[in-house]
Amino acid sequence: MTRFDTNKDGEIDQEEWESARLAAQLQAQQIYLERPVEQAVSIITKPDISQRPFIISVYPQKRLIKKYCQIAFSAFTLYLVLMGYIVWLMQTYH
């Protein structure tokens, strides 16, 4: 408050607020520019265990696992329904 209250009235007016905002912006830019630039490192390797699928995805592993489990469950459910239908058809038209 004392740093930006130039007229010493105990309140920050619009001009003082803009001065404080500009100082904060300049300080943030200075801190950002002083940070060391980190190089992005990407390593893609085939898994050690050959039984595992080699999947490259932008999605996290947990999301992929959930997706493929849902697909497998849906396929199994469809299989059971179709097998039941085939058995019913065989019983009905035999």
Rank of each mutant, 00 (worst) to 15 (best):
P47D: 07
D13M: 05
V81I: 14
F54Q: 08
R35I: 03
Q30D: 14
H94I: 14
L22M: 15
Q61G: 00
L89K: 10
E18G: 03
Q30G: 00
A72N: 09
L89F: 14
D48Q: 10
R21F: 04
Q29R: 12
Y85K: 08
R21M: 13
K62P: 00
A40T: 06
Y79A: 12
C69Y: 02
L82I: 09
K8D: 09
W17D: 05
D48H: 09
Q39W: 06
F4H: 03
F76V: 11
L78T: 10
F54E: 13
A75G: 04
L33M: 07
L78D: 11
P53K: 05
G10Q: 05
P47V: 03
S57P: 04
A75T: 09
K46Q: 10
Y85Q: 10
E11T: 08
D5P: 03
A40R: 14
A75S: 08
A23L: 06
I44C: 00
A28C: 00
I55S: 09
A40F: 07
Q25T: 08
A72D: 04
Q27I: 07
F54A: 13
I31Q: 15
Y79W: 13
R21E: 11
I43H: 09
D48C: 00
D13Y: 05
I12G: 02
Q29D: 15
T45Y: 02
T92V: 07
A20M: 09
L82C: 06
N7L: 03
R52K: 11
W17M: 12
A40G: 15
F54I: 10
Y79F: 14
A23C: 03
G84H: 01
F54T: 06
F54N: 11
M90F: 10
Q29F: 02
M83S: 05
Y32W: 07
V87K: 10
K67P: 00
Y59D: 13
Q14T: 08
A40N: 08
S42M: 11
L82M: 10
K46F: 06
F73N: 13
Y79S: 11
R3S: 06
A20Q: 01
S74F: 11
I43N: 06
L78S: 06
Y68D: 04
Y85S: 14
Q91C: 09
T6D: 01
P36V: 07
P36G: 06
I56Y: 07
Q51S: 13
L33F: 00
Q29S: 13
R3W: 00
V41L: 14
I31M: 14
L64M: 15
P53M: 04
M83C: 15
T45P: 01
L80D: 06
V87H: 05
S57A: 15
R63Y: 07
S50P: 08
Y93D: 03
N7T: 07
A20G: 10
E15P: 01
L78R: 01
Q51I: 14
L64W: 06
S50H: 08
E16I: 02
H94Y: 15
L22P: 01
I71W: 03
R21C: 07
D5V: 03
Y93E: 11
Q61E: 13
E38T: 12
P36Y: 04
A24Q: 06
L78C: 00
N7S: 05
Q25K: 11
S50G: 01
I12D: 01
Q91A: 04
I55L: 12
F4E: 02
I56K: 13
A24H: 03
P60A: 08
C69Q: 12
T92Y: 15
Y85W: 13
G84N: 11
A24P: 00
Q70E: 15
